[in-house]
Design a protein around this nucleic acid. Structure first.
Length: 264
DNA sequence: ATGGCGTATGGAATACGA
């Protein structure tokens, strides 16, 4: 079973790229963030035509928004609010597998604004509140993959320049600490670093500095976490960098996790 | 120290991204 997460940065603007990603990666599950549309107009028929007929979306007009599109039936869809504001940052569902019911959670952690200081920056306070709730929200050891655009690069090698980025939102000491605490409290495996413990491993390259992707000045902001105790099910995974080089790309690249279980 | 570019909304200029 292949699980892919991708911040599409506008689903309508990225429709052709989504189809190409589905065709090239053949995911069983595609978790998306920043669909930037109301869930009522989520293009179910387009996903069905692409082979992913089962969907769950949680989003509002214009900004943020998350979704899951699946090759296999989804059950027990949950759109519970995390972080105190219901602005489309969490949708969750289950899929039946040979290893038991697998829960999938698509998450869009608040970006956090400009300054990494909860006293002066409400957006950063929202981000930290969201991460604080993440510690307890995903309790339990059941078969579960949670991930998405978590908007934190947790390790020193998860940015191109640790010393410089440490002053910025997304890589501040406080954010990196709370993400480590959330991983420990939730008994998660960070599958990206499980598969590649060392070296640059980025999933986001900004638009604002045009040669960022060409020079690989990236951040690892997109993650797939798997509950500990299921590590033996991991068969592979990677970042699909190709799509970041296509015309008018999302600033994020899809992140892939392959598990040995099959649907049903 | 700052901005760079891009999507969405609404039909110009602004919010948001990180």
């Amino acid at each position: 079973m292949r699980i892919v997460t991708w911040n599409v940065n506008g689903l309508r603007a990225r429709a052709a790229h989504v189809n190409r990603v589905i065709e090239e990666l053949q995911p069983d599950i595609l978790m998306m963030q920043e669909i930037k549309m109301d869930a009522a107009i989520f293009p179910v028929d387009d996903f069905a035509a692409a082979g992913l007929p089962h969907t769950a979306a949680h989003g509002f007009k214009g900004k943020h928004g998350v979704a899951i599109a699946s090759r296999h039936p989804l059950g027990d869809i949950d759109k519970a609010v995390i972080g105190g504001i219901d602005d489309g940052r969490h949708v969750s569902a289950t899929v039946s597998t040979s290893g038991g019911d697998l829960r999938l959670s698509s998450l869009y952690v608040p970006s956090g604004g400009d300054k990494p200081d909860v006293e002066i920056n409400d957006k950063f306070a929202h981000k930290m509140a969201f991460m604080q709730e993440m510690k307890s929200f995903f309790a339990g050891s059941g078969f579960h993959v949670a991930g998405g655009d978590l908007n934190i690069a947790p390790g020193e090698q998860d940015v191109h320049d640790h010393k410089k980025c440490r002053r910025q939102v997304g890589h501040s000491d406080g954010e990196r600490a709370i993400m480590a605490e959330a991983i420990e409290a939730g008994e998660w495996i960070d599958t990206g670093r499980h598969l590649q413990p060392e070296g640059p491993l980025f999933s986001w390259w900004g638009y604002r500095f045009p040669p960022a992707f060409e020079r690989n000045l990236g951040w690892r902001l997109d993650h797939l976490w798997l509950k500990q105790g299921h590590a033996e099910k991991i068969t592979g995974g990677s970042v699909f960098r190709d799509s970041r080089g296509w015309e008018k790309p999302s600033d994020h690249a899809p992140v892939i996790l392959d598990l040995s279980v099959t649907a049903g």
